[in-house]
């Protein structure tokens, strides 16, 4: 089996600040892979580097066997799409859902737009009634569903998820996560998911990487994490922190 995403010695530098310090990563095709770590550990930067939104200083990124250069071509964006963390900021405030979903189709010159938009809305559990709403007429969960529909409408094989549920409340979180699970199973997608919530990562992902300060701490499987079979102190601390407050 080939790797969907292979990253080798990736360095990202923002104005002398090294956000990623030589990270290696391999995500297999059809796998759901998690990235965990505290704020500022570089997990989101890793996703952004893959999409070309963060400046890559050195290192190699290979997606579906193709090495990526400095710029990404249109074909890349049909393979890789991303769902952002904040559904309140990721939808254009002056565009209806219809316009939002039409845009990727127009950019890529896809003709069966009507059908695709209807199918995409159905797939994320939003009926026709939502098609002509503006973002401010939607709730947080509905917005995130629209963002997922937008990511899926180009039928990518890899979906990058940047804390897709951290801005949502608990019950809506579960709905969106279930939706993502379902979509992945049906479309055989590869997920690369960032989260600081270990429970979500163990629920969604088979393997995961723990990151700290722009470096990989260790790579684990979900069952290792659940069984607390970890070798690094940092991961142990993270696990302890995720158990939350303990009443004394």
């Amino acid at each position: 089996m080939t790797a969907a995403i292979a990253i080798d010695g990736l360095e990202v530098v923002f104005d002398r600040f090294r956000a990623l310090k030589g990270v290696n990563l391999e995500v297999r095709e059809g796998e759901s892979y998690g990235l965990v770590g505290e704020s500022g550990s570089g997990k989101s930067t890793l996703l952004r580097a893959i999409t070309g939104l963060a400046p890559v200083a050195s290192g190699a990124i290979t997606v579906n066997g193709k090495a990526l250069g400095k710029t990404r071509d249109k074909a890349f964006y049909r393979d890789v799409q991303m769902v952002f963390q904040d559904p309140y900021g990721s939808l254009h405030p002056r565009q209806t859902v219809d316009r939002l979903l039409q845009e990727p189709l127009a950019i890529h010159g896809i003709s069966d737009g009507e059908k695709r938009i209807e199918r995409a809305l159905d797939e994320v559990g939003l009926g026709k009634g939502f098609r002509f709403r503006y973002a401010h007429q939607l709730s947080g969960g509905q917005r995130q569903r629209v963002a997922i529909a937008r990511a899926l409408i180009l039928e990518p094989s890899i979906l990058l998820l940047d804390e897709p549920t951290s801005a949502l409340d608990a019950s809506v979180q579960a709905e969106v996560l279930n939706l993502l699970e379902e979509v992945r199973r049906r479309r055989k997608l590869t997920f690369l998911m960032v989260s600081h919530d270990l429970a979500i990562i163990t629920h969604m992902c088979e393997r995961l990487m723990v990151m700290q300060d722009g470096e990989a701490v260790e790579t684990l499987t979900a069952s290792q994490l659940i069984g607390h079979r970890v070798s690094e102190d940092y991961t142990r601390n993270l696990l302890r922190a995720s158990e939350g407050f303990v009443r004394v």
């Binding site: 890349f76 799409q81 991303m82 952002f84 900021g89 990727p104 890529h108």
Partner: peptide, 10 residues
């Protein structure tokens, strides 16, 4: 993010 999202559509 919404401008980033459009960039990510190519």
């Amino acid at each position: 993010d919404y401008i980033k999202a459009v960039q990510l559509m190519g």
